[in-house]
Design a protein around this nucleic acid. Structure first.
Lengths: 338, 338
DNA sequence: TTGAAAGCGCTAACAA
DNA sequence: TTGTTAGCGCTTTCAA
């Protein structure tokens, strides 16, 4: 155990102790550098003795980027988002990057924060925010900074994307409800527009209309559990009981709907009304809800995002790409068995 | 709209355009620096025109720290943790820091990651990980790096702490169950030790023993919903129905217990058995669970953590401190009304 | 394979 | 209040 150093040791100190130059120290800590194994050995030993570690700030200053990747997320305390962030941050770390977390709800906040981020010469950005400000993304384009957007489309010209096919999602939901025997359809969605969440709800409505039927839409103030429950309760027992198959545009909203239907309105699910959600978050499998839903494969989503990021870093000239992730139905207790 | 700059502008470019020195530019971007308002004005204008922003890497290299604060968290995809991380990260950003997120489950991972973090000259660290490796924290102590630990005690000499009083928590849980009329008590806890989670369970058990009664302990493999549900089911209807008041050491485990009791074992809550959780996460208020629990005030927790961090930054000589956060009972439907 | 020297972009001490 | 100067700790040509 070395005595507590008061000043942090620099590559210079290590070089002196190891009897080599500072360049040698630098090379010893650069994977794949041209350096004799024994020199590297000497340096590593001296470094350990001194408690030296490379200063990433100085390194980033010298190289073009810092190894930091911005991770922009809104509603982080939501089950889907927190799982996404966990998976992404673990994947980034595994790939040798450092995720810098930006949690912001308002597009205005985001703008200022990204500005901060750019000051750190980030190597790239992954955005799962609800509404990333387009100006910001265009800024990244101007700086030739890799950006991966998750479940957001059409925001700007710049940026690669991983998306769940919203049309397929809407159709799949209808399919599930139809096969389960529902004939009159309803859709619960938030008023506030969001590409993915309102997008799939609209796709569902259109799919229903494609059948020559009409879809009863119930609008919630926002995407939270409470918003959904309130919306269902306000729609009232009468209106709700005319719906046989209800598609909720997120699982979270489906839970609110289920509690509203069962507890507040006294309807039985799936006997009186069948419910399908979207996302397959962990809670959907919990016994009290046991929700039939459509699964977004987050592991696959993460892997795709990382691939896009890496390919873009390797070659900035590659045209913008969009990857589709798989969607799969998960049958549980809120629809009748077929 | 300026033409796309290919090389990022530096303070030198701004200085030239504004007709001032580079120091003037630096001062213009340093809050509270000695600079004439009109000079600052000139600089800001030139900077905007060029699309200049301060390079935080270079700034951090010069100053003693980088403005980055490490945020270490495990089980980020868990409701309590994700809310903590959201609040902390927002508070950090508001205070002008940048949270760098470290998600790691194994103490071994953490060690390597912190090493990385230290390479960024972080200004401090906030740790809400389940089991922060003590060696690591002592490293921070050696480097005189501010560390705030949340709900972890006794890990090491170094570091300030925000904790929920585990003894008070255990006693409070017993109190609630007793007043609700329960006479025979049980406690559901994870086998794997954790200061806060197993700590309050033990406190509950001791409080029960203090009454001269014995407490039936049910051990789950871990802290997840599924672990809790399985544990209850394996304990069996017979054993469970001998318990009148069950304390679950987290809300998440309480949900698993509730579903196990009601769905798998066919017991009624609160008629046959009453249940109390801990944390008051969002889901506890959901209709299907409507869980009586003990609330950790996360807003207060965040505020305390930030205060400790800032005070420590201001004065490294201050002795280590521990702040207690308030605990409050929340009465809902899994206990009988008093 | 190695070392010397020249920056990366910024701030801080000093002098004007 | 401003400009000059000297680094912060590292990587990276370029010679040797």
């Amino acid at each position: 155990m070395a005595e507590p150093p008061h000043r942090k040791p620099t590559s210079f100190d290590v070089a002196r102790l190891a009897g080599v130059s500072r360049s040698a120290v630098s090379r010893a800590f650069t994977p794949g550098a041209n350096i004799a194994p024994e020199t590297r050995e000497k340096v590593t030993k001296a470094a350990k003795k001194l408690g030296y570690r490379v200063n990433n700030l100085a390194r980033g200053l010298q190289q073009s980027h810092s190894g930091i990747v911005g991770l922009v997320a809104s509603r982080l305390d939501t089950p889907l988002r927190s799982r996404q962030v966990r998976l992404l941050s673990e994947a980034l770390i595994r790939a040798g990057f450092q995720p810098m977390l930006l949690t912001a709800e308002q597009p205005d906040d985001v703008a200022g924060l990204i500005d901060m981020l750019l000051g750190y010469s980030v190597a790239g950005m992954i955005i799962t925010s609800d509404t990333p400000p387009r100006a910001l993304i265009e800024d990244c384009g101007r700086l030739q900074l890799p950006v991966v957007l998750i479940n957001r489309a059409g925001v700007s010209d710049w940026g690669d994307r991983v998306v769940a096919d919203i049309d397929a999602g809407g159709t799949l939901a209808l399919d599930i409800l139809q096969k389960a025997g529902a004939g009159r359809f309803g859709c619960l969605m938030p008023v506030k527009e969001t590409w993915s969440v309102t997008g799939r709800a609209n796709a569902f409505v259109e799919a229903v209309q494609g059948l020559g039927r009409t879809c009863r839409c119930i609008q919630a103030d926002d995407q939270a559990y409470g918003d959904a429950r309130r919306a269902v309760v306000e729609a009232g027992r009468e209106r709700m009981s005319q719906i046989e198959g209800l598609f909720c545009s997120t699982d979270l909203m489906a839970f609110g709907a289920l509690d509203g239907l069962r507890i507040d309105l006294g309807l039985r699910v799936p006997q009186d009304i069948q419910v399908v959600g979207f996302d397959d978050i962990e809670q959907a499998a919990w016994g009290a809800y046991d929700l039939t839903t459509i699964r977004q494969d987050l592991e696959e989503q993460t892997a795709l995002a990382m691939r896009l990021l890496r390919e873009r870093m390797a070659d900035m000239e590659v045209p913008n790409r969009t990857c589709d992730q798989k969607l799969a139905p998960v049958f549980r207790g809120t629809t009748r068995p077929v």
